[in-house]
């Protein structure tokens, strides 16, 4: 048996990781193909793949995927561009923190999805509304988490920099930011995951394109195969973006691993 915290080899890790997917699909196949679950409610894996293929080749699902990815990335980039500098300032300067923190903490708990009806009223069901949903859902989370990370910067590093002649600006630019850059990247990776949820919800409620729109359309047709395919595509894109983010972080912050 394995001891607590004992590492596993790389190959074992891969094999174990894949075997869960295999088990998952096997259980799904038995439940559906074995006739234990009605086809109306749950398509079997083969139908799902077939429907997916049809979606991609016949119904232009690729452009839906493209639109959804574009929305997530767009909204997320805007949120990050606003939130990271604000978070750094909040973490670094306590008066700014005292000023913004109570509001941001409150706004963080406002569910982005609940804003959708209001946003439709304000911005229609166009791209602006989608971007706003993602923006509202991400911006406060990023601000707060970045502020906490920056606020927890090792004091002795800051003091060392002061004794080496850093100005206050120098402390922010050449200690607080680089010291927390890996944490900030990790925060962005986490929030990007949540942004995916917001965009799909926004597309489910009011949209004429996108993965969420396809899923809600398929519901009308009782096409569970298509719906499941859409959900799985979201999962796969999430996995890919996560992987890319991690690879980038490893490249950008070699000192974290050294």
């Amino acid at each position: 048996m394995h001891r607590p915290l004992e590492p596993v080899s790389y190959s074992t890790r891969i094999v174990l990781g894949i075997s869960f997917f295999v088990l998952f699909f096997a259980a799904w196949s038995i439940a559906t193909l074995g006739g234990y679950v009605s086809r109306t409610f749950l398509a079997d894996p083969i139908t799902m793949l077939h429907d997916g293929w049809m979606l991609l080749t016949r119904f232009g699902f690729l452009s839906d995927i493209g639109i959804t990815v574009w929305r997530v990335v767009g909204g997320f980039v805007i949120a990050a561009a606003v939130a990271v500098p604000l978070g750094v300032l909040m973490g670094a300067y306590k008066p700014i923190e005292a000023f913004l923190e109570p509001f941001v903490s409150f706004a963080r708990y406002l569910p982005a999805s609940a804003f959708i009806p209001l946003l439709i009223l304000w911005a229609g069901i166009g791209e602006m509304q989608k971007l706003l949903v993602i923006f509202i859902g991400s911006v406060f989370q990023i601000i707060l988490m970045v502020a906490v990370a920056v606020g927890n910067t090792r004091r002795d590093l800051v003091e060392a920099a002061y004794t080496l002649g850093s100005s206050d600006r120098g402390i922010v630019n050449r200690v607080l930011i680089p010291a927390n850059a890996p944490d900030i990247a990790e925060i962005l990776r986490l929030v990007l995951g949540w942004a995916w949820t917001y965009v799909i919800v926004a597309e489910l409620i009011g949209s004429s394109a996108g993965i969420g729109h396809m899923i809600i359309d398929s519901q009308a047709l009782m096409a569970t195969g298509q719906m499941i395919f859409g959900i799985i595509v979201i999962g796969i894109i999430g996995l890919i973006s996560d992987f890319l983010f991690k690879a980038c972080n490893r490249k950008l912050f070699p000192w974290k691993l050294a």
Binding site: E159, A160, T163, L164, S166, V175, K256
Partner: peptide
């Protein structure tokens, strides 16, 4: 100049960059 008991090198900078920190400032 100050040297602390705790290790206060900037972990994101190499040894050479650490030594150059004050000069850069």
């Amino acid at each position: 100049g100050m040297v602390f008991q705790s290790y206060t090198l900037f972990p994101w900078l190499t040894i050479a960059e650490n030594i150059a920190y004050g000069l850069r400032e």
